[in-house]
Simulated assay, not measured.
Amino acid sequence: MQLKTRIAEAVKTAMRARDRERLATLRLIQSEIKQFEVDERREPDDPAVLAILNRMLKQRRDSIEQYRQGGREDLAQREEAEVAVLREFLPEPLSPAEVAARIDEAIAATGASGIKDMGRVMAELKPQLLGRADLAEVSRHVQTALAQRGGGRPG
C-alpha cells in the first residue's frame, strides 16, 4: 500500500477511535503532504513522503532538545508522542553496522577516492537510507571515510 494511502487510513482509524493526539499528528502529516503537492504540482511518491516524514522527525527532535533545555518537559513529551506517530510510517531503522556496510558499498560502487567524490557517494546512499538512517550522521561518516581514503580533511 502506498504510504500516502496508509496515512489516510490511519487518519480514519484515529477519527473512529476518537484519539485526538494521534489524529492531530496525522493531520499535520497530511498537511505537509498537501503543501508538497501545491508547491511541486505533482502527487508525491513514497520517497517524497519519506523525505517529508524525515524532515518532520528532525524538526521534532530539535524541538524536544530545545524544550528540555528550557525546562519544558510537558512540551517535550508532546513532541515525543508526535515522533512515535511519525515513526510508524518510516521503514525499520538500520543499525550502525548496517549503515557502515552501506557506506562502504557505495564508496566501492562509485569508485570514490576522496572528499571530492562525496556528492556521488551521498547520491548513491540517499535512496537506500532515506527514512532508515539520519542522513546528516551518514554524511559525517562518509566524509570521515573519504578523508581516510583520499587524505583530505573531514569538515
Rank of each mutant, 00 (worst) to 15 (best):
L86Q: 08
F89Q: 01
L90N: 03
R27N: 12
Q30E: 15
L57R: 10
G119H: 13
M1I: 01
T110P: 06
A17L: 01
Y67P: 08
A136H: 13
R68P: 06
V142S: 12
A14S: 04
E80I: 07
A81S: 11
R102D: 07
Q59A: 13
A108C: 02
L23Q: 12
R102P: 04
E37H: 03
A133D: 10
K116S: 10
G70Q: 15
L130C: 06
I29R: 05
I52C: 03
R6T: 07
A100L: 03
Q59N: 11
R42Q: 09
D45Q: 12
G151T: 09
E32M: 02
V38K: 10
P154N: 13
V11S: 06
D62N: 12
R132A: 07
D134H: 00
L125Q: 08
Q35H: 14
D19M: 08
D104T: 12
G71L: 07
L86S: 05
G131W: 08
A108P: 03
E73M: 04
R153W: 15
A101E: 15
L135S: 11
R78S: 08
G111R: 09
A133P: 04
A133Q: 11
F36T: 06
A10R: 05
D45T: 04
L75K: 12
G131P: 06
A24F: 11
A133I: 12
I115T: 05
G150M: 13
I29F: 00
Q148C: 10
A136W: 12
T5G: 07
E43S: 11
Q77D: 12
A100R: 11
E124P: 01
L129H: 01
I64V: 15
I115C: 02
A106F: 08
E9Y: 10
M118G: 09
M56W: 02
T144E: 15
R153T: 15
F89P: 09
L3S: 00
L94K: 13
P91T: 03
R20G: 15
A112M: 04
I115N: 02
V138S: 11
R87K: 13
A147E: 13
G114N: 12
A84Q: 09
